[in-house]
């Protein structure tokens, strides 16, 4: 992590893991998450998927709680929209 990144509250480096699970390959936990995410949307139509996404964001935002983190994440997401 560089000095600049230390000052920022939002984690932007790979950060997926699961307690008690051992990963032998660096790509595995991220791929596990991505599969869970896509699977959660299976058989939903576009409207239902959008609703799932909205609820998911609210659930995760409340879990994170820290408004400084959320503000930064919102700004970063807005940049690429």
């Amino acid at each position: 992590m560089t000095k600049g990144e230390l000052a920022m509250p939002l984690t932007l480096t790979p950060n997926f893991s699961e307690a008690g699970k051992r990963y032998f390959r660096a790509f595995s936990p991220g791929d596990d998450f991505y599969e869970m995410l896509i699977d959660a949307h299976r058989d939903l139509d576009d409207g239902e998927s959008a609703m799932l996404n909205a609820q998911l964001i609210l659930l995760l935002a409340n879990h994170i709680g820290d408004l400084a983190v959320l503000r930064e994440a919102l700004a970063k997401a807005r940049e690429g929209a």
Binding site: A26, F27, G30, D31, Y34, K76, G80
Partner: peptide, 16 residues
């Protein structure tokens, strides 16, 4: 996101 952020680059899966 991959253009700017390492976490997203790790999620780009064009073959493991």
């Amino acid at each position: 996101l991959a253009e700017h952020h390492a976490f997203a680059r790790a999620l780009v899966n064009s073959g493991r």
